[in-house]
Computed example of a mutant assay.
Amino acid sequence: MQKLSKYAAALLLLAGWDAGAKDLTILVVGQSLSANSGGHRYSEPVKNLYQIDLQGRRVPAKDPLLWASGDGGSLWMPLGRKMLQAGLADSVTFMPIGKGGTSLENWLTPGSYVNGKMYRALDVAAQQKIKFDYVFFLQGSSDVGTPMKDYASRFYTLHHIIQGRLKQSGSDPAWIVARHTRCGDLFDPEVVAVQYAIGRRDNRKHYFVGPDINPVGMQYRRDRCHLNRAGQEKVADMWLHSLQEVMRRQQK
């Protein structure tokens, strides 16, 4: 990435960011919005934007991203580009392992496809000693109607599994938890409230509040649920803003 000007670096320092070199690696967990469900494929590689391939190697990123389900586009290609342009990192690497239509119970059920994929991905990360800086969590519409206590319990169980495996490769990433249940006519304010409470749970040291995807209008959605190109760009901006806030808080 082109070096920051002295003026740009000063602005970043005033905002509370370290303008020095930084390579960010991010695991993405969730359902279809976290995977390759977007209406536009970003197929042109972006300099210094990478993904983890099925063997655990860092390779140039392009849609559809390798571990995630679906054959469309992602949020993470435009987000990575925006992170690099904003000077938040010198390189960005994503490993999205999301699967469309999955509830938290699916992720925790031995023998389910997504449970097996999760363990394969975590094994690869441990074997290759991949160190993650963040986990982005974007899930919820498949849990509409789930009691609040059950949703919270399943989330923390999933967190315990993933975080325990990641520690084997020496990483203890912070989790940024999005608020999401909106898909067509589906919406569950109680699940959203739990997602928000999780993000605020430990005084901004380990969990952080992510973007609220629910208000994103139908003009940004290709099928009343998943995002079109304008929606992919808009929600990437929302993630960028959340990440900037998290980085400010981490500097305090």
Score class of each variant (00 low, 15 high):
L49A: 07
L84D: 06
A35M: 02
G30D: 06
S5N: 08
A121C: 06
W175H: 03
K205P: 06
D18A: 12
K6S: 14
E44W: 07
S142L: 04
F155I: 07
P211F: 09
I198W: 01
R248E: 15
R229L: 11
L158I: 00
L166D: 00
V235A: 06
G145S: 05
L79K: 02
M247D: 07
L243C: 10
A61W: 06
G101S: 07
E233S: 01
N48K: 09
V29T: 10
N203M: 04
G116T: 11
M247I: 09
V191F: 04
L186T: 11
S169M: 04
Y220P: 01
P189K: 11
A10C: 12
Q85I: 10
R229D: 12
L104V: 03
Y50L: 07
S91V: 11
L33F: 10
G140T: 02
Q250K: 15
A15K: 15
E44M: 09
R57V: 09
G145M: 02
K167T: 09
V144E: 01
E190L: 11
I26H: 01
K205F: 03
A61Y: 05
A19S: 13
Y134A: 01
H180G: 05
L138M: 11
I198R: 00
V216Y: 03
V92F: 05
P110G: 08
L27H: 09
K149L: 12
S69F: 07
Q232D: 04
L11K: 15
D188S: 00
E105W: 09
W17M: 15
Q168Y: 04
Q51F: 02
V135A: 03
Q31L: 02
S112K: 14
T157M: 10
K22P: 07
G101T: 07
M218F: 15
G56K: 08
V216N: 05
A125H: 07
Q127A: 12
V59A: 03
V209G: 10
A236R: 05
S37A: 15
L158H: 01
R154D: 12
T93K: 06
H241G: 13
V92I: 15
A174G: 13
L227H: 01
S141R: 11
G184S: 11
R179F: 09
A125K: 01
E233F: 00
G80E: 00
Q2R: 14
Y207G: 04
N228C: 03
P60N: 01
S74L: 02
L4A: 02
W239F: 11
T181Y: 00
G56L: 08
N106R: 10
D71V: 13
V192N: 09
P110S: 08
L33D: 12
D185N: 14
M218Y: 14
K62D: 08
K47Q: 15
T102N: 12
V177K: 01
A8D: 15
A86H: 07
Q128E: 11
L14Y: 14
M247L: 15
D212I: 09
K167M: 14
Q163E: 12
D90P: 06
G20F: 04
S91G: 11
I162E: 02
G164I: 05
G30S: 00
E105P: 00
A89Y: 09
S142H: 05
D18W: 10
Q251C: 13
Y113C: 10
N203C: 13
P96E: 06
K99L: 15
Y119V: 10
